[in-house]
Design a protein around this nucleic acid. Structure first.
Lengths: 110, 110
DNA sequence: TGACTGTATAACTGCACAGGAATACAGTAG
DNA sequence: CTACTGTATTCCTGTGCAGTTATACAGTCA
């Protein structure tokens, strides 16, 4: 369980925390989850997620700023697509961690 | 970039988001970073991080509730230790993602 | 040109939460 | 018992941000 400690500078901690924060919203995870199937327009995402248009735009802006998705304009439409596949691994890891945690909690109860 | 879409239930999204949120604070990442070197008492962590005692206790409580660390009481002292090594992978992944992002931003500027 | 569609951007409100101060609690020592 | 130490918890305050509404902007079509 012990690792070589590589102390991180405050600025680095802020950066990492900031990016985790982008993933720390159900709405944004929902958008990413839909985008995992491929490129979508804002309108598609509004319809699929049930979120209103302004909200979707803002969430996508945050995801894009963090580099998780990228934007492509085509006429009136804006197409968004996953730009960093590490989000898949991040979410998978987190889901596995949750499964382990729930398993422990279950053992503690029964 | 396209994957098989496995739609997640709202409750699942909340869970995943909630755990990302625990990692979305510089102070907690700092604590985890120190704990990567091994088990520490609250006092150790207060001294190492410069955070005040109440803050450290509260952050550790959140980390423990999420299952990232676990607590062991010994006399007056409370020893905390990393309980889920996936935090290492999560942070490594995030750091790599940041490096890629910064590399892209750099290319876009120069 | 003007009307319309898709998207982005204010401006506002409410809430969750980090940080700090004070206090409560548990364990030890005398 | 009392005094003290290490840790947890409560209360308070300020701030960041999600959600909503309204509006602005950009591109298309007549």
């Amino acid at each position: 369980m012990t690792r070589i400690a590589k102390p991180l500078a405050p600025a680095a901690l802020e950066m990492v925390a900031g990016r985790f924060k982008v993933l720390a919203e159900p709405a944004r995870l929902h958008l990413l989850n839909v985008l995992m199937a491929g490129e979508r327009t804002v309108g598609d995402l509004v319809e699929t997620t049930g979120l209103n248009q302004a909200n979707v735009s803002k969430h996508l802006a945050l995801l894009a700023e963090a580099g998780f998705v990228s934007r492509r304009k085509e006429g009136l439409h804006a197409w968004y697509v996953i730009a960093d596949s590490s989000v898949f691994k991040l979410c998978d890891l987190m889901c596995s961690a949750i499964a382990r945690k729930l398993g422990k909690d279950l053992q503690a109860v029964k």
